[in-house]
Simulated assay, not measured.
Amino acid sequence: MPARDIYHNNVKNALIKDKWTITHDPLTLKFGKKDLYVDLGARQLLAAQKAEYKIAVEIKSFSGRSDVDDLEKALGQYILYQDILIELEPERMLYLAVPNRVFDDLFEEPIGKLLLKNHRLKLITFDPKQEVIKQWIIPN
Rank of each mutant, 00 (worst) to 15 (best):
P99L: 07
T28G: 02
I22N: 02
I84R: 09
H24K: 01
Q49E: 15
F62M: 04
K50W: 07
I16R: 07
L115D: 11
I59F: 00
T21S: 00
K129S: 03
K12C: 00
D105K: 15
I55F: 00
P2N: 09
I22W: 03
E87M: 14
P139G: 14
I111W: 11
A14M: 07
G64I: 08
R120C: 12
K12E: 04
L46W: 03
A97W: 09
I137D: 11
A48W: 10
Q82H: 12
T23G: 00
L71S: 05
L45Y: 05
G32S: 05
Y53G: 06
R92T: 14
W20E: 04
E108N: 15
L71Y: 12
N9G: 06
K19E: 08
P110N: 09
I59H: 01
R101C: 14
V68E: 13
V11I: 09
I124R: 06
K113C: 10
D67C: 09
I79F: 14
A74H: 06
L46K: 02
L96S: 02
L29F: 02
K73V: 07
R43A: 01
D83S: 15
W136G: 05
P99S: 10
K134V: 07
P2Q: 14
I86N: 11
K54W: 01
I86S: 15
L115Y: 15
L71I: 11
D18R: 03
K122H: 15
W20H: 01
Y95C: 06
P90I: 09
Q135Y: 13
S66H: 11
L106Y: 11
L94T: 02
K33D: 13
N10R: 04
R65F: 08
I133L: 15
A48P: 06
K50G: 07
E52M: 00
T125I: 12
R101S: 15
L27W: 02
L116D: 08
